[in-house]
């Protein structure tokens, strides 16, 4: 039909989005944001036994400019929330957030005034990872699930449409307390 049939063998065709997604996921640099016990497991994931470098993620960047992924590892106190947001704002697009552990995801067992009840109150979260703390396998699993997301992410006007669609959906969504059943 199209250009595919006229190509010599050994040439693969893909979309620009596909290539860009492949590149992005293959060198995915996390920013260190270890806040509590989860950070220990996060460090272990970078160590030789679990070796995140197998997925091109060996460098945990201390500078947000050079990072693509913020792993929020641990409970976020109300005082830490603005710092967290600032780091997030300093990261360059495209950027992703992974809420590691129950405390970052929803406040966990710290259902009190001192802890932000879920880091998604402060920054948009792309992946929630339960566990207290999650073992390195769970973190790697979450990162790989995030890789899948990155691979299929959109570019240019498609991205803008996607953002708009997500925004509309988020605005129309019920409050979390009413979203599913009776749990919050």
């Amino acid at each position: 039909m199209g250009i595919e049939e006229k190509l010599p063998s050994g040439v693969l065709l893909t979309t620009v989005e596909g290539v860009a997604g492949y590149m992005r996921k293959a060198s995915f640099w996390p920013a260190t944001f270890g806040l509590a016990c989860c950070a220990i497991e996060m460090m272990t994931s970078g160590g030789p036994r679990y070796d995140l470098s197998r997925f091109g993620m060996e460098v945990f960047r201390a500078s947000p400019r050079q990072a693509d992924l913020m792993i929020v590892a641990g409970r976020v106190s109300q005082k830490m929330a603005p710092v967290l947001r600032q780091i997030y704002d300093q990261m360059a697009e495209p950027k992703y957030v992974l809420a590691m552990g129950v405390c970052a995801s929803s406040g966990g067992m710290f259902n009190n005034y001192a802890i932000v009840q879920g880091v998604d109150h402060v920054v948009p979260v792309d992946m929630y990872l339960p566990g207290c703390p999650p073992r390195p396998e769970m973190l790697i699993d979450a990162i790989l699930k995030l890789h899948k997301q990155v691979q299929t992410s959109k570019l240019g006007s498609n991205r803008r449409d996607q953002i708009e669609a997500l925004e509309t959906e988020a605005l129309n969504a019920l409050p979390t307390s009413e979203m599913k059943g009776l749990l919050r």
């Binding site: 995801s105 929803s106 879920g118 998604d120 792309d126 992946m127 929630y128 990872l129 339960p130 566990g131 999650p134 073992r135 396998e137 769970m138 699993d141 979450a142 699930k145 997301q149 979390t176 979203m179 599913k180 059943g181 749990l183």
Partner: peptide, 13 residues
């Protein structure tokens, strides 16, 4: 089983 990560809060209930 420990592979529980998901991209939204509702599905984790």
């Amino acid at each position: 089983e420990y592979e529980l990560a998901d991209d939204n809060r509702a599905d984790l209930i």
